[in-house]
Structure formats: C-alpha cells, structure tokens
C-alpha cells in the first residue's frame, strides 16, 4: 500500500453510495487518478468544498500502485477558483477545459508541464474578460502539449508555405494542405491566410499572455471551426459541455 502526496486539480465529482463521492483528479505528479472520498457528502465532511470541480488542491491518497480507484485521505484547498464558479460564462469555460482534460488524458500519465498549463488556464479564466480567445488557445495548445501538434507551418504534400487563401486542413493527418495541393489531398475544411496566421500565433503564444491577442471578429467563427474540428478528431465525439458555451453566448 503506497501513500501519494501531490497537488491536483479536481476534474469531476460524482455522488457514490450513501455518503461518499467519487472524484477524478488531475495531479501534478501522478497524472489522472480516480479516488473515493469517504463520507464527503456529509455536511460536516472534512473535505468541505475541496472536492468541487475546478479546485486546485493539495491531496494525500493511498492504495496499491496501478489500481483503478484510490482512497482519498486528505485535501487542502490551494486555490478554490470560486469566482469562476460564480460567473456562468467563466464556469462553462472552466468545465469545458476540465472535460477536455478528462476525455483526452489517460489515467496515470504524469506530465507536470501539462498540469502547469491547465492551472495557468484556470487562472486566466479568472482574470480574463475575452474567454473566446482563451478557449481557442487552450484547445490548440492543449492538443499540441498532448503530443498531437498540428503541422501549421508547411503543406503536408509539397512542404511549401501556402501563399494564398483557401488553405485546407486534413484532420486525420493533422496538418494544412496548400490551395495548389488541395485537389490531390482530402481536406475537410478550408480557411483564409488570416486564420492560418492566427492559428500559428495561438499555437506558440504563452497562455498567460493570452489577453495580448485580439481575434478579429470576422475570423472568430473560422478559427473556432478549425480548432473545434481538431478537438473532435481526437475525442471522437462532441463534448457534453461544448453546447453550454454556445448557449451561454445567447444568454
């Protein structure tokens, strides 16, 4: 039986049996883990608000190495991100990020740089007013940090930079196809040079300075379509929280 001591972000919590909770954490040292928190539903539970999704916590859990479900022993809130929960737009964005992490990250894969990125993204939700750009940046950067870096620099076929609009994107091969090669290669969408430039910028820009980029309104839909299709090509299904973001815009 091993004792694990790590920082983590709470991805998801569901009620489990009479008074317990089952929580999914993304930890800095041990990747994604699932834990049972005994008696966490009780009013005087020692976990308090620590197991609410979005919370950044310091936790201790135990169990045999490699088992599917660990037993939570202790939690301290390091940052609650409560202000994110009190604003519907910010909350839905945060929940969308959490669902992306939960869907695309496999259990037990430790990646401290990914953890820091997720934490920084949550901090940015708290600070930022323009969540649209933050969502686009998170989508594209998160995918590249997972190792699915899209090839945005040169055409998949001729290896040359596309010079004019009508650039295609092959989601299966994860790269762009120039207008000249498009008839030869299956590309599921096409976009302008402006969108291409912004996609490259989003891919390399540090998320903590995301407020320094302004997305032109005219390109927003096109950029969203590309990043959303990129996400879909990896998840294989629409995320449950995605329609909520669309709904929130109309609220």
């Amino acid at each position: 039986m091993a004792l694990y001591n790590t920082e983590a972000v709470v991805l998801r919590t569901i009620n489990f049996s009479e008074t317990d909770k089952l929580c999914t954490l993304y930890s800095r040292n041990f990747g994604k883990v699932k834990c049972v928190a005994k008696s966490a539903r009780r009013l005087k539970s020692r976990y308090g608000a620590a197991l609410e999704p979005l919370s950044y916590i310091k936790t201790i859990y135990f169990g045999k190495e490699g088992q599917e479900l660990y037993r939570l022993n202790h939690c301290d809130i390091l940052k609650s991100f409560q202000s994110v929960r009190e604003d519907i737009g910010k909350l839905y964005t945060g929940v969308y990020f959490l669902e992306l992490v939960d869907t695309l990250v496999h259990d037990g894969e430790s990646a401290p740089h990914l953890f820091d990125f997720i934490l920084e993204a949550l901090r940015q939700i708290q600070k930022q007013k323009d969540l649209e750009i933050l969502r686009r940046m998170f989508e594209i950067r998160f995918i590249s940090l997972l190792g699915y870096l899209p090839n945005l620099s040169v055409c998949l076929i001729c290896k040359k930079e596309p010079g004019k609009s009508g650039i295609g994107f092959n989601f299966q091969r994860g790269g762009i196809v120039c207008p000249t090669c498009r008839p030869r290669e299956l590309s599921e969408t096409h976009f302008s040079v402006g969108t291409w430039n912004y996609l490259k910028k989003l891919l390399t820009f540090d998320i903590q300075y995301s407020d320094r980029i302004k997305l032109p309104k005219a390109l927003q839909d096109e950029i969203e379509q590309v990043t959303h299709r990129m996400i879909l090509s990896h998840t294989g299904r629409e995320l449950k929280s995605y329609p909520f973001i669309k709904q929130m815009v109309s609220l």
Binding site: L43, K44, R46, G48, A49, E52, I77, S80
Partner: peptide
C-alpha cells in the same frame, strides 16, 4: 458553517 461544526476545520470557501 454547519451548526455544531468547528471553525478550525472549515475550508477557505466555506469560511468566505
């Protein structure tokens, strides 16, 4: 805070 609870064991969100 719940009745009968202890301030010492309350988390920051609940205290706030």
């Amino acid at each position: 805070l719940p009745m009968g609870g202890d301030l010492e064991y309350a988390d920051p969100v609940t205290l706030k």
